[in-house]
Write a protein that binds this DNA or RNA. Structure first.
Length: 116
DNA sequence: CGTGTGACTCAGT
DNA sequence: GACTGAGCCACAC
């Protein structure tokens, strides 16, 4: 069993993967949110790098999107990411997610206020 | 150990 | 709404 080796990655990477794995189906999360849950609210960029290097297929990296509901990237196969999200019930329009506000996880508790 | 790069984010124009 | 510049972080070389 243990075909995987999560221990070979750094702590931060392990934490990021853990967060993404916790994202339920039909839900999406932004890189910044993952970074924050991972303990580095400013490491959105690093999270993107980790996803690009994610060697763990158990991680639904397709549920990780950029801020403002943008799809972001997917190793050049953005179309696949859109299809995967759509297959989970997420409304995707081109490179933009329409219902990301209601599908962002964890539930931000509601909509944003006048101030970001 | 310094530099460059990238599936990012924010603020300003 | 779109583009630009600057900031921030981890990893490969």
């Amino acid at each position: 069993m243990m075909a995987k080796d999560p221990n070979s990655r750094s702590d931060f990477v392990r934490r990021v993967l853990s967060v993404v794995k916790r994202v339920p189906p039909g839900r999406v999360i932004t890189y910044g949110m993952v970074a924050e849950l991972a303990g580095r609210p400013r490491a959105a960029r690093a999270v993107g790098n980790i996803m690009a290097s994610c060697g763990d297929r158990s991680v639904p990296c397709h549920r990780v999107i950029a801020a403002a509901g943008r799809i972001g990237g997917f190793g050049g196969n953005i179309a696949m990411k859109q299809a995967l999200l759509r297959a989970e019930g997420v409304r995707v329009a081109g490179q933009l997610v329409r219902d990301w506000r209601e599908r962002t996880w964890p539930a931000a508790g509601g909509r944003r206020r006048t101030n970001k």
